[in-house]
Design a binder for these strands. Structure first.
Lengths: 245, 245
DNA sequence: GCCTCGCCAACTGTCAACACTTTTTGCGGA
DNA sequence: TCCGCAAAAAGTGTTGACAGTTGGCGAGGC
């Protein structure tokens, strides 16, 4: 058998670079390594990843489509900045979809899934007592994710996280008010009750309000920020330009 | 003034090919020129458009992200086929989002926009009397679009048509039951009333049900199809291409 | 001193070519 | 006739190169 035992050093084509690059850029945006408005230097990025510009461009094109990047003719790709209006719009969309997820989930959620949600609520209570804001943040996300998964709507399961990722492009980091954790978890408990009773309409209403409450907190935070920013700020808005070599 | 007056025959770079190609492929899918499951031949397509494969690949990558194409390693891009489950999932998502659009629109819709919806309803009545199914189809789409636009949620305005486009990938052509047109337009009238009265909750409920009624009709059509297909059908599965009349 | 113009470096958009994989074709043998 | 099966053809994934554009910098004119 003359089957060639390919030496694996060079390109055994078992996967495409594109999804890897795409996830890498997503990661860099998620961690804040790439922040809103910055330009993606295709050549530099390709060099750093040890590949050529082609796959990088394809990955950027994909990320443009899901709203994480935008492109400018002859100037390339930029990390998108999400305006306040867009962020608020996203809250409304998430509220609607989350409500839909709950309505669907109420009809088909399993006892195992219900127990999972119950446990998360318990752990969130613990995180509140600690208090451990980071843990609460993670648990909260997981709670939301599991509700969406319980809807068994694959398209929704795919879509919902994309909207959340886009929302995260609004400034750096989420804005969780410590004081809201207890209220938030109370809402979780009500949601769990509705799901337990297969009350689709009730669950939908509660879930929707849960997100809209987040939107309200978000708005309040913005107003506070504007109030403090009324003070004279730094004059030079763009001072940070690092050249890697 | 030695500025070179470039002869415009070759690449005056005022626009990128990628969005053009992307729209062209979307068009081909929309018209049924490209049908579900078929492979996109990059080389052929590039040749036909008179460009190279690079931009074609970028366009395909973008279309993959919005769900119109899928990719297989070393085999390229294929026009996606939407399963029955996915189609039903999409109806649920559209229902939720459409309801959200209505709730938002009710609070801010202008009298001009209301008049526009009213006119569309009148034209749909006329189309029903004719009867002109194609016209009704177009008017109905426009009605939905205008409701979404009235929400003034840019993200929603962008997202909603994508979901509809994906739904169109389910088999060839939409399935509008002629008998449902009158019912459908009655629903439109109720929706318009709710919007007129700034009744967000009512509009949301009606819009949601409007889409879910479409889902129910879709399901019934599927069952009918399955019932008739239970008979020993023709061996060539692609023989039934009826023009709706 | 400040503005304008032209040059230069950096970078994007596109192309043509190469490496590798999948699919088709041609052919000999059961 | 029909099946392997190997070689050719077709097609994808990636690369490096080239042409055109953008933005910065310095010289010269006001």
């Amino acid at each position: 058998m003359l089957r060639r035992v390919a030496n694996p050093v060079r390109t055994p084509r078992t996967a495409s670079f594109v999804p890897l690059i795409q996830r890498e850029i997503e990661r860099m945006i998620g961690t804040g390594e790439l922040t809103g408005g910055t330009r993606i230097n295709e050549s530099t990025l390709a060099l750093r990843l040890g590949i050529s510009r082609g796959p990088v461009r394809e990955a950027c094109r994909a990320l443009e489509q899901i709203g994480l990047l935008r492109s400018e003719l002859n100037r390339g790709f930029f990390v998108r900045e999400v305006s306040t209006k867009e962020a608020l719009d996203l809250y409304d969309i998430r509220a609607g979809l989350f409500g839909t997820a709950g309505r669907l989930a109420a009809a088909i959620i399993t006892t195992v899934q219900l127990r999972g949600l119950e446990e998360l609520i318990g752990e969130m209570d613990a995180a509140i007592e600690a208090p451990d804001i980071a843990a609460f943040y993670t648990l909260n996300n997981e709670f939301h994710r599991q509700v969406v998964v319980a809807s068994d709507n694959d398209k929704l399961i795919e879509l919902y996280p994309l909207l959340e990722a886009e929302l995260h492009l609004f400034r750096r980091r989420g804005l969780v008010l410590p004081g809201s954790m207890r209220t938030s978890n109370d809402e979780h408990k009500a949601i769990l009750d509705a799901l337990r009773q297969s009350d689709g309409t009730g669950a939908a209403r509660l879930l929707e309000r849960h997100i809209l409450a987040g939107k309200a907190r978000f708005l309040r935070t913005l107003e506070d920020e504007n109030a403090t920013e009324a003070r004279p700020g730094p004059l030079d808005p763009r001072h940070s330009r690092s050249k890697d070599r």
